[in-house]
Design a protein around this nucleic acid. Structure first.
Length: 422
RNA sequence: GGGGAGGUGGCGGAGUGGACGAACGCGCUCGUCUCGAAAACGAGUAGGGUGUGAAAGCCCUCGAGGGUUCGAAUCCCUCCCUCCCCGCCA
C-alpha cells in the first residue's frame, strides 16, 4: 500500500511514477476525493461524539429528573445522527481502502522504463553458455531415462504439471534444499520454519490479495490459504509488533513448498518441472531500517549471485523494467541460470526491495529511537533459490554424453559423498 | 470432537454501567543524590486517527466484530486465540 500522506502531498509525483509502470492516474484523483469526503465526515461525527461524551458525563451527575430526561432525549437524537454518520464514514473508508490496496508500488527512479521483459537490462553475467561437446538433452529426457523424474505417475496422482521425484532425484532435491539453507545461514540469515497454511490477512499483508486470488489455493470453510511463497508467512511474522531499531536488520531464510494455481495458457512451459502447481523454494527475507533498504538489496543480490556461482553454472543478473516488476516491488533483480538442454536462461531468483509497501499492509513497525513515534520499516525478499529450476540447471549443465549427471561439488556432502547419478 | 477456565498497557495484575485510557506493583527513560554505581526520592512512560506552521484540543482502541444504553473494559450476540481435562491421532 502506498502512503496516503504521499498521495495527498504529491499526487502528481505519484501519478507520474505510476505512469512509468503504465498505470492510469485517475485512481489517485478518486482516492483524493474519497479522502476529502472522509475527513469532512470525520470532523462532523467526532464533534458530535465529543458533545455526547460531555453531556453523558453530566447526565450521570444530574439530580433533577425532568432536566435529566430532557438531556437524555436530546442525546438520543445525537446518537442516531452519529450512527448514521459512522456508517457513511465506514463506507467511504472501505472504498478508499480497497482502491489503496489495488495500487501497485511505485518503481524506483533507477528502474528502466518498459512495458515488458524485453526492456529488462542484463547488468551482470558470469560464465558463458558453453558447448557440452555432445547434443544436450532437456532435463525431462534425462530425468525419465535415469528414473529420477516420473511424469506419468505424477499426472496419474494429480494431473498435468505434477511429477514424482524418485530415488536420487528426490535425494538431489533434498540435498539442494539443505545446502541452500546452510549457505544462507552462513551468509547471516536466520533459518525459519513457518506454517505453509495461513490466514487470509497474511495474503493481504504480503500483497497477494486482492489482485492475485486466482493464483492461490484455499480452504474456504476454514478460512485458510496455502502459501504461494515463503514470503507470505515471513512478511507477517512481526505483524502488529513494534520492533526496536536495535533489532534491525532481521535477515531470515526459510524453506517452504509453494502452491500456485497458475491458471495460465495451457501449452506454455508444460514440459518438465519448470512450472508446477507445487514446487519448493528457499527464500531470503529482510526487515530493515528504511535508510538501508537499497544497500540491503545489493547485499541480497550478492548473496543470491554467490549461490549461483557456487553451483558452477553460468548465470546472469537482470534489472527488471517498470512493466515486468511485481506488484509490490520498487526495484527487482532477477537471476537466471543457463539451461543448455532447453537453451534458455531460467529465472531462479527474484530479489526485490518493496520499501514500506508490505509494512503498511501488514502493520510492521519499528521505533527509530526511544521515545520516538513508531515508523514503518522496509522489507525485502529474494529467492535463494527456486528449487525445481535449479534442479533443471544442474541436470542440464552437468549431464554427460552417456546421460549420467555429475553432482556439483557443493552438493556432494549432502548426497552421501556420491558424485554422479547414473 | 466433548467439557471447563480465560484473553486488560512492555510485563504482572485490579477493575460488573458514569469519577477508567485504565488503580497498584515491576520494568524502562530522565532528574536529584554519588568520585562512580546501587539504594532512596521525584517526574515521565500505549497505539491509531483528526487537527496545526508546530501544538493544544477532539475522536477511536481493554482479543476482533456487531448489539443494548444518554453513557460499556463492565451487559448481550458472533467469531478468533490461549490454557486445563477427556477422546482421537503422526
Amino acid at each position: 500500500m502506498l502512503d496516503i500522506k504521499l498521495i495527498r502531498e504529491q499526487p502528481d509525483f505519484v501519478k507520474a511514477q505510476l505512469g512509468r509502470a503504465e498505470v492510469a492516474g485517475d485512481v489517485i484523483d478518486t482516492i483524493l476525493s474519497l479522502d476529502e469526503q472522509r475527513r469532512t465526515l470525520l470532523q462532523q461525527v467526532e464533534s458530535l461524539k465529543a458533545e455526547r461524551n460531555a453531556v453523558s458525563k453530566e447526565i450521570g451527575k444530574m439530580k433533577d429528573a425532568a432536566a435529566r430526561d430532557t438531556r437524555i432525549a436530546e442525546m438520543r437524537v445525537v446518537g442516531d445522527r452519529i450512527t448514521e454518520l459512522d456508517r457513511e464514514v465506514a463506507e467511504v473508508e472501505e472504498r478508499q481502502r480497497m482502491l489503496m490496496l489495488e495500487i501497485r508500488n511505485l518503481p524506483h527512479a533507477d528502474v528502466p522504463e518498459g512495458a515488458d521483459e524485453s526492456a529488462n537490462v542484463v547488468i551482470a553475467q558470469e560464465g558463458e553458455p558453453h558447448d557440452l561437446g555432445f547434443p544436450a538433452q532437456p532435463h525431462w529426457d534425462l530425468g525419465e531415462a535415469l528414473g529420477i523424474i516420473d511424469f506419468e505417475r505424477g499426472a496419474k496422482l494429480s494431473g498435468s504439471r505434477f511429477y514424482v521425484l524418485q530415488g536420487l532425484g528426490a535425494k538431489l532435491q533434498r540435498a539442494l534444499i539443505q545446502w541452500l539453507l546452510d549457505l544462507h545461514v552462513e551468509q547471516g540469515y536466520r533459518e525459519v520454519y513457518p506454517p505453509f497454511i495461513v490466514k487470509e490477512h497474511c495474503m493481504w499483508g504480503a500483497g497477494q490479495l486482492p489482485k492475485f486470488s486466482d493464483n492461490l489455493y484455499r480452504d474456504e470453510d476454514a478460512g485458510f490459504w496455502l502459501v504461494p511463497t515463503a514470503e507470505v508467512p515471513l512478511t507477517n511474522l512481526y505483524t502488529d509488533e513494534i520492533l526496536d531499531a536495535g533489532q534491525l536488520p532481521i535477515h531470515l531464510c526459510a524453506y517452504t513448498p509453494c502452491f500456485r494455481r497458475e491458471q495460465m495458457s495451457a501449452g506454455r512451459d508444460v514440459r518438465g518441472i519448470k512450472r508446477g502447481h507445487q514446487f519448493d523454494k528457499v527464500e531470503m527475507y529482510k526487515f530493515v531500517h528504511p535508510d538501508t533498504s537499497y544497500a540491503e538489496l545489493e547485499k541480497m543480490r550478492a548473496d543470491a549471485e554467490a549461490t549461483c556461482r557456487a553451483l558452477g553454472i553460468p548465470f546472469r543478473t537482470k534489472l527488471l523494467c517498470t512493466g515486468d516488476m511485481g506488484f509490490a516491488a520498487t526495484k527487482t533483480y532477477d537471476l537466471e541460470l543457463w539451461a543448455p538442454g532447453q537453451e534458455e536462461w531460467l529465472e531462479v531468483s527474484s530479489c526485490s526491495n518493496v520499501e514500506a509497501f508490505q509494512a503498511r499492509r501488514a502493520n510492521l513497525r519499528f521505533r527509530p529511537a526511544p521515545g520516538e513515534r513508531p515508523d514503518h520499516l522496509h522489507t525485502l525478499n529474494g529467492s535463494g533459490l527456486g528449487v525445481p529450476r535449479t534442479m533443471i540447471a544442474i541436470m542440464e549443465n552437468y549431464q554427460q554424453a552417456d546421460g549420467s549427471i555429475v553432482i556439483p561439488e557443493v552438493l556432494r556432502p549432502y548426497m552421501g559423498g556420491r558424485d554422479v547419478i547414473r
